[in-house]
């Protein structure tokens, strides 16, 4: 079972918000370089699941192992662990009081102890990779939603994470900006980054995902390759979800 290349192992994960059982018996492994797309109706627990991976949410039962190290709420070096995992949020969550460049260098300088000059070089490098090299001096409020989300991706990449988590990265975007963000994510996938994405972008899932995980009511209901899942879902709930997502 214990595959050396597994970078994330989740076993028997359960989580409650008060009395509400939000995650039930989740088992999931992610190999290095794998791209996982998690989808499912809203309230199915998919965001909570990826937020458990970097412990933005703490779980009560079960284990999460990242690169062989078990993580939990009381651990000492939780910050060091989080530093290996990059996260992109639905609402970008850029720091509005800092310039784009400072958004990108802050964690490098103060968490990873990268010298400022090197941090800035790295920041500009990643801004170039997300195709907005000339916005470094601006403030987040001066950018479009698509640009902000690409800055957020660059910010997460700056600290050279092993794993990238995407929590509905395109849900808050206008339609014409979704593509520019997805393009950046596809490029990132092609470079071999390990990615766990909560998204309803089925085109993206088809293109890059190794596996699609379908969740409903806190459980993983189906787990399959994208073609298998999209063409031949094995459960009624999977079929129903797909018909709602794909039919318009």
């Amino acid at each position: 079972m214990a595959d050396r290349a597994d970078i994330i192992r989740i076993e028997g994960l359960n989580k409650w918000f008060g009395q509400f059982h939000v995650l039930r018996d989740i088992n999931l492994t992610v190999g290095a370089g794998e791209k996982i797309v998690i989808c499912g109706p809203s309230g199915s627990g998919k965001s909570t699941l990826i937020r458990c991976i970097n412990q933005l949410e703490t779980h009560q039962v079960g284990t999460i192992t990242i690169e062989g190290k078990e993580i939990h709420a009381e651990m000492k070096n939780i910050e060091a662990l989080r530093a290996q995992v990059g996260m992109v949020f639905q609402n970008f969550n850029l720091y509005p009081h800092l310039s784009v460049l400072d958004n990108l260098t802050l964690a490098q300088v103060w968490v990873h102890r990268v010298p400022r000059r090197e941090a800035e070089d790295r920041a500009r490098h990643y801004l170039e990779r997300v195709h907005i090299p000339d916005q470094a001096e601006k403030f987040p409020g001066q950018l479009s939603g698509g640009q902000q989300q690409r800055v957020a991706i660059a910010r997460a990449l700056c600290t050279k994470p092993q794993i990238m988590l995407f929590d509905e990265p395109t849900s808050a975007l206008d339609p014409e900006m979704i593509k520019e963000v997805l393009d950046v994510m596809i490029e990132l996938a092609e470079e071999g980054m390990t990615m766990v994405c909560v998204t309803h972008e089925m085109g993206f899932a088809r293109k890059v995902a190794n596996r699609v995980v379908f969740m409903d009511d806190g459980r993983i209901v189906e787990e399959a390759g994208p073609e298998e899942f999209f063409l031949d879902p094995q459960t009624d709930r999977g079929r129903m979800f797909l018909s709602q997502v794909l039919d318009h």
Binding site: L56, E79, R82, N93, H97, L106, V111, T159
Partner: peptide, 26 residues
């Protein structure tokens, strides 16, 4: 907004760094 705390936490900042650089200035 809660997202500011989460973004800072997710980037590996501890409590004091998050407060000093992200939350208190705003």
């Amino acid at each position: 907004p809660r997202g500011q705390f989460e973004a800072a936490t997710a980037s590996g900042m501890g409590y004091w760094k998050m407060m000093l650089f992200i939350i208190l200035p705003q």
